[in-house]
Design a protein around this nucleic acid. Structure first.
Lengths: 235, 235
DNA sequence: GAGTGGTCTAGACCACATC
DNA sequence: ATGTGGTCTAGACCACTCT
């Protein structure tokens, strides 16, 4: 853990606890640096994280403010839908493993996972429900050599915890692509869609800090239950 | 323009031109710093931009690499769908202004735009086609006091250029929320959807560096033509 | 061990907002 | 004019990868 992440975590807590209230101006940089015993640049890195999360806004010459946000619950969504959202267990999520097998990568998968054709990959299909309502069907491909000893019970628990805590791997980024297509019978079966109704697909490629691709995943949602939030920040 | 943005632009060009080829290792940090006459931290900021854009990957202890990317055209999409995508004229886009009026903000809009109820806002509805195909219907609300002299011909040209170049305002961030709903007759008329078919909606709030909200915009896409790409980077 | 990125600091100087 | 963030530098030290 780095110092700037620590500081970001502490300040985020204060915002969520209401110690820094909505619309409030934060102590200015110098004071924050003194309070958290760090340098200006380090504090900037910390606050930049919160900017990206949409919790604060920084205005040159004016100050740093807790974001006036109609999106009070948008913030929580933002957390839920963070990098780890796909792996974090939500209280209300139930997950059923439909397919769990090892197959050799074909040309398509080899491209997507940056591996050799024929290298073995896990092929996993999971159906997830939210409070009993069909929510998403996930098709995941995951190179065997990155997670050699995957078991069904890891899938049912938390793949993310296993990867980060047990294997000590770190996720660097996810590339996400959202599109929509007409459903075929496979998605219709689980998601309860009618013929002629589309599903929404997230195509996700997850990179580790090592540069390797951890997974290629297609998630297919019922259109009525789909929601995605993000913040684009100007560099 | 800052130095790190300049450097990022230069290196990005080299990647796009193919001077730095896919999979290639870039000169290491120290050399880049000498070449571009800057400090290590400045170079890191420059390269971080390209990381966020998905063009390069940095591996501690190993080096900086042009991303092996099946997504060669994913990169272009990434550019298209940057902060300014909504405003930039695409060659193939035609845009028709359906509604252009000034109305007082109701409670809902006042919340969304962080203004007082009753403050005047532009209400704009535009239909956009891509190569003649109906593509998106955009409903925009924009406080009058930020852009006091908006004219239809500015809308037809580039609102973004007008705001940045003429008004010297800078966009800081966009909050984006993507959902899907069944179409009502209004969207069906333009998008050519059938009854029972959903559209995909982007709800976007755009913030200026001043902290003010520039616009609240709902964009409704035909599901079959919708595509959104983004990269989530671990802090 | 050598190569390469990541974090942190102290301090200079700049740009913008507010009064 | 003062308050407040943003950028840039030089240099120290750390963490990871490769072989």
């Amino acid at each position: 853990m780095t110092k700037y992440r620590d500081i970001a975590d502490q300040i985020r807590s204060k915002i969520i606890n209401g110690e820094y209230t909505v619309g409030m101006k934060l102590p200015y940089e110098y004071i924050l640096c003194v309070n958290y015993r760090c340098n200006k640049e380090t504090m900037k890195k910390a606050l930049d994280i919160l900017v990206k999360e949409g919790l604060i806004i920084r205005r040159r010459g004016a100050g740093t403010f807790v974001k006036e946000t109609t999106l009070q619950d948008g913030i929580n969504k933002q957390f839920e839908r963070s990098l780890t959202r796909r792996f974090l267990g939500r209280k209300t999520v139930s997950s059923q493993v439909i397919v769990f097998e090892v197959v050799p990568a074909d040309h398509f998968l080899a491209e997507k996972l940056q591996i050799e054709e024929g290298d073995f990959v896990y092929h996993i299909i999971r159906d997830r429900s939210l409070d009993g309502e069909p929510y998403v069907e996930e098709i995941t491909y995951l190179p065997l050599n990155i997670v050699p000893h995957l078991k069904v019970n890891i899938l049912n628990h938390s793949l993310y915890d296993y990867i980060t805590q047990d294997l000590h791997l770190r996720i660097q980024s996810c590339h996400l692509n959202i599109t929509s297509s007409l459903s075929s019978s496979m998605e219709r079966d689980f998601l309860g869609l009618s013929k002629g109704e589309p599903y929404i697909q997230e195509e996700q490629t997850t990179y580790l800090t090592t540069g390797a691709i951890l997974e290629y995943c297609l998630s297919r949602y019922h259109y009525a239950q789909y929601e995605f939030s993000t913040i684009l920040v100007n560099h």
